[in-house]
Design a protein around this nucleic acid. Structure first.
Lengths: 151, 151
DNA sequence: ATAAATTGCGCAATTG
DNA sequence: GCAATTGCGCAATTTA
């Protein structure tokens, strides 16, 4: 998404950036104050006055644009962060759901197992009692042929 | 993941940076005006010379530290991004797994249903044939009492 | 006390 | 033209 353009790791593509902000803790320091101007090429040497519409710096226009952008940046970042958080939450939710589902599966498996056993038992009963009667009260011997551990 | 520490959302903990910015949204705007240094503390006014080891700027030390930090920052951000991506992937995986589990549940449910039906049928057969024999070849009437739609 | 890691922020180049 | 993104560097903090 969006090429990183060609911005090498050129250390300081910045050129200027610093305006005069800075100050800070360490006791502020001087002002960098530099005017970028174009580097080598055929720089147009526009007078420091207002060439055109004062697109230089300090321009009201400029300042305003910067501010707008800063705002947009902040917003964008906030959204980004939020999204990441949401994603994380989604992971947790899904994990929980997964556990629930697995529990359910286990349960169903057990139920199935029980029913199957019961079933087999009866089947055998029938087989054994092809001809009913007698055999006193034994609960019909339990046999164990198939352990039925499906899955 | 790392506490957000105590950084209020104070907007500009920066110190200065504000040039004249602010304003915005609602429209009001007031002049920021820098903060008057430390309140009660002992304001040490060290001359701009070399307060110790030239930790000012341009210092080799400074430059080196900056570079190191820049590197660290880059690394950190990369990791962060990667993590986010991984999280997203995890979401996808979990979603898939979820679907699989649900399928399995559905299947097991069906199996159970079948077995239960079969079971009931037999039970009824037995009940009807409390006294075996005769009754020719009818498959023992099928009754339908319980529809067994568990859960 | 120190170096590395994080985090908020502003700038500028791109994108859409 | 403008808002949204994105890479980058700075400085303040937090961790280790």
């Amino acid at each position: 998404m969006s090429k990183p353009s060609q911005q090498k790791t050129t250390k300081d593509q910045n050129g200027v950036s610093v305006i005069q902000t800075q100050a800070h803790t360490s006791g502020l320091q001087q002002v960098p104050q530099l005017v970028p101007v174009s580097p080598g090429g055929g720089g147009k040497a526009m007078a420091p006055s207002k060439s055109k519409k004062s697109a230089d710096k300090e321009s009201d226009e400029y300042r305003q644009r910067r501010e707008r952008n800063n705002l947009a940046v902040k917003k964008s970042r906030m959204r980004s962060k939020q999204k990441a958080q949401d994603t994380q939450e989604r992971v947790n939710e899904l994990k929980e759901e997964n556990e629930r589902l697995e529990s359910k599966i286990k349960l169903l498996g057990k139920e199935l197992s029980v029913l199957k056993d019961l079933f087999l038992e009866h089947a055998h009963n029938l087989a054994d009692n092809v001809q009913p009667q007698s055999n006193d009260g034994s609960t019909t011997g339990q046999n164990n042929k198939n352990n039925n551990t499906g899955q």
